[in-house]
Nucleic acid binder design. Structure first.
Length: 422
RNA sequence: GUGAGCGUAGCUCAGCUGGUAGAGCUCUGGAUUGUGGCUCCAGCGGUCGCGGGUUCGAACCCCGUCGCUCACCCCA
């Protein structure tokens, strides 16, 4: 297939009605939960100035270096489809002086992101994130609260996952650690894999999460950042852990956890699932205390996370989504043109009363209309034929048990209404 | 960007050492002239991803190309 007209772009996909209930359910849970924690929704543009991401995310990162959908628009401006939303949220925070309210600013978003990566299980070029950001506080309890909120969402969906945390230090202690790491690495260079040899000088931190078997013994002997944090970072990390313990949240410290975005400092965390394949992160996040200033805003320590909505959908248990599936309360079946007209009138009246009804316009037999009702999982079928037209009393059939009886037009509305309310 | 595997009906797939395509599900209709889900019967539906080559003959072999999948990389 190379038909450009009838094929979507690689890494993009259609979300069809069959699976949309899963998405809506997750989004609904997220909105309700985030509201409970005091987060309000923000919707920022999907497209932003390229500079925002280049400076916000860091020009050395893979995202900025090779994964962004960037193009020059008709105004000769370099623009980019957002690869993530944190930079946009911080930009909006600054631009709209949201820091003036006093206290922390808590925001969440739901929407598509774009990265030009090779498609893989759990990885798309257009993918969806649910994210939350708290700006204006460096209190460790905020770190713990956000982790708790992300875990709550995942658990409320019936998904099993593990929490991994780390502290990646700050602009004071991390460079010292990286220097130490780099010099230690020199001792092992001949033994490391090709990638690690290359990374050991320029991108030493990346060596830590190398997955090549032969590198593991040497990586295990390397110094760990949590042993080399400055007093402030160490204290912060200790208090985050303590707040997590107060909340009875089990965590695993993973000193090798390094995030791919430059702006992260101190707390970094990831929530992983065993059911996802190689791309196993359901959520990732961390603190980015300096980002506001990098983008020209006021000092505003902040922390945020993003959940991969597509990945949540993948591991969502099959049960308990049925009530999110749309099903008509009533399908109105008819025989003949006069009955069709009556059906339209009754449907219009019922819809005005807030009921959902479906009419088959294909003009098929009563049997085919019943088949359709069955396929759509309509709860009831109303039958309009010659007898019903004349008497204004209709046959109604409950599909679940096959029971059928007669009902007047006036009784119909209240019958369906009562059903919904009970 | 690198590597491996795979592209046959709407979907899931079969098709032995090359002899120009089949099943299940879905869909439509009938058995039930005004009634679904089960069963039975019938029917619709395919340039075998695309292009070229070998051959009397290619879904099958060869080359190229596009696409998909998984993995590396990286991340949600």
């Amino acid at each position: 297939m190379e038909d450009l007209l009838t094929n979507n772009l690689p890494g993009t996909r259609d979300l069809l009605p069959d699976e949309i209930a899963r998405w809506q359910m997750i989004e609904h849970h997220a909105r309700r939960l985030f509201f409970q924690y005091g987060f309000l929704e923000i919707r920022t543009p999907i497209i932003e100035s390229t500079d925002l991401f280049a400076r916000g995310i860091g020009s050395d990162t893979d995202i900025v270096g090779k994964e962004m959908y960037t193009f020059i628009d008709q105004s000769n401006r370099s623009v980019t489809l957002r690869p993530e939303a944190t930079a946009s949220v911080v930009r909006a925070f600054i631009q709209n002086t949201m820091y003036r309210g006093g206290g922390a600013t808590k925001l969440y978003y739901i929407g598509p992101m774009f990265r030009h990566e090779k498609k893989q299980k759990g990885r798309w070029r257009q993918f969806y994130q649910i994210g939350a950001e708290t700006l204006g506080s460096d209190h460790p309890a905020i770190d713990a609260e956000m982790i708790e909120m992300a875990l709550r969402l995942i658990e409320s969906l019936g998904i099993k996952a593990r929490l991994l945390i780390n502290s990646v230090g700050c602009k004071n202690c991390r460079p010292q650690y990286v220097d130490l790491l780099r010099s230690e690495l020199q001792n092992y260079v001949p033994n490391l894999c090709e990638d690690c040899r290359r990374r050991s000088g320029s991108n030493s931190l990346r060596v830590l999460d190398c997955k090549v078997e032969s590198c593991q013994p040497f990586i295990a002997q390397l110094p760990v950042i949590t042993d080399h944090l400055c007093a402030e970072c160490s204290g912060h990390f200790g208090r985050v852990k303590s707040f997590l313990e107060d909340a009875a949240i089990p965590y695993e410290i993973l000193p090798r956890l390094v995030r791919g975005l430059d702006y992260y400092v101190r707390t970094a965390f990831e929530i992983v699932s065993g059911d996802l394949g190689a791309q196993n992160a359901l959520a990732g996040g961390g603190r980015y205390d300096g980002l506001s200033e990098i983008l020209g805003g006021p000092p505003a320590p902040a922390i945020g996370f993003a959940l991969g909505l597509d990945r949540l959908v993948m591991v969502l248990p099959e049960d308990s989504i049925s009530r999110w599936e749309w099903r008509p309360e009533l399908l109105i079946a008819y025989m003949g043109e006069p009955a069709f007209r009556r059906a339209l009138t009754i449907a219009r009246e019922l819809r005005t009363e807030g009921r959902s009804c479906y009419i088959d316009f294909s003009g098929g037999s009563l049997k085919s209309q019943f088949r359709l009702a069955n396929k759509l999982k309509a709860e009831h079928v109303l039958i309009i034929g010659e007898e019903e037209l004349a008497s204004d009393r209709y046959s109604i059939k409950k599909m679940a048990d096959g029971r059928q009886w007669e009902i007047t037009r006036a009784e119909l509305g209240s019958y369906l209404k009562t059903l919904k309310e009970s």
